[in-house]
Each structure stands twice: as C-alpha cells, then as structure tokens.
C-alpha cells in the first residue's frame, strides 16, 4: 500500500514535470516543469534505498542501527539537489538573455525569431517576415548548432 502510494507519487511527479516541459508555451513554465521532474527523480532515488522497519544511517547510542536505510542513494540525491539549483540559476540567466534578445518568453515567438535570425545568418530569403529581424547579437552564434535540426 505504502509502496504503491509512494511510487505513484514519484512517477507522477516525474511525468507531470516532463509533460509540462513539453507542452507549456511559456519558457518560464518549462523551467518549472524541469524542477518538478527533478523532484520526482530525487524521490524515486530515495525510495530505491528505503528499507522496511529501519532507522536513519546515523550513529546512535554507541553503534550504527542494526537495520538502516541505504546511505548511498541519499548521498547521490543530496548532491543532485544542489546541482539542480545551479542548473536552475543558469537557466534563469539564459531566460534573461532570451528576453533581452527577443523581447518575449512565449515559446512560439522566441522560436520564430530564432529561425528568422538563422535564416538571415545563412542568407536564406524569407518568404514573408512578420517581425523585423533583430540585429546581430551574441545569441546568433550560440544557437547555430541547435537550429540545424529541422
């Protein structure tokens, strides 16, 4: 019973975060989806080291507890949480730059702008441009590799 509840919670968090990342139309919400998925993954890892009727892995009254939860996944999750906050800050910094460059955080608008910038860079004539292309910027060189996939 307990196992079912916890596993459903962890996997649901992971999948909700992933779906939010894929479906949301706003870049900030995509970042929130990433954080939610991270929480689900961390919970899943801690669940992997759980043991019935056990104690925390800490010296207590002269000895380590007879039965204790596995300390290795806990150590991994501990570092993963701290890395997560670093990644989050980096993503926010990138969002700030994207907003400076394109003036918006809507995914479709940002993507359209990037495509136009790429086309301009490669010398492709635009069929019909809805927006005036923004000028040269450091973003151009940074996204050249990422935009080539289509």
């Amino acid at each position: 019973m307990l196992a079912a509840i916890l596993y459903v919670g962890a996997v649901s968090l992971l999948v909700i975060g992933l779906a939010g990342m894929l479906l949301s139309s706003h870049l900030f919400r995509m970042l929130l989806g990433l954080v939610i998925a991270e929480a689900g993954a961390n919970l899943l890892l801690v669940l992997a080291g759980y043991r019935w009727e056990s104690a925390a892995p800490i010296w207590e009254s002269g000895a380590y507890p007879q039965l204790m939860v596995d300390p290795v996944p806990q150590a991994m999750v501990l570092t993963a949480i701290v890395i997560g906050v670093g990644i989050q800050a980096l993503a926010i910094a990138l969002l700030v730059r994207i907003r400076q460059q394109t003036g918006s955080l809507q995914r479709d608008i940002v993507r359209e702008q990037l495509e136009q910038d790429l086309d301009l860079e490669l010398g492709v004539k635009l069929p019909s441009s809805m927006h005036a292309p923004s000028g040269e910027g450091p973003l151009l060189s940074g996204t050249r590799g990422a935009g080539n996939e289509q």
């Binding site: 954080v35 801690v46 080291g49 925390a56 999750v77 501990l78 701290v82 906050v85």
Partner: peptide, 25 residues
Amino acid sequence: LRAPDVAMTEGVVGVGLSSLIFALA
C-alpha cells in the same frame, strides 16, 4: 523515509533558496 540529510538539503535548497531565486527571476 528516514533520510534526514536529504530532507535538510531539500528544505534549505528547495523551499528557501530555490524560491528566492525564482522570486528574483
């Protein structure tokens, strides 16, 4: 789940620092 270290990290980082970073963002 008997993970006091992880709980402490999540409490400090997730509830405190992460919210602060998001608020500033």
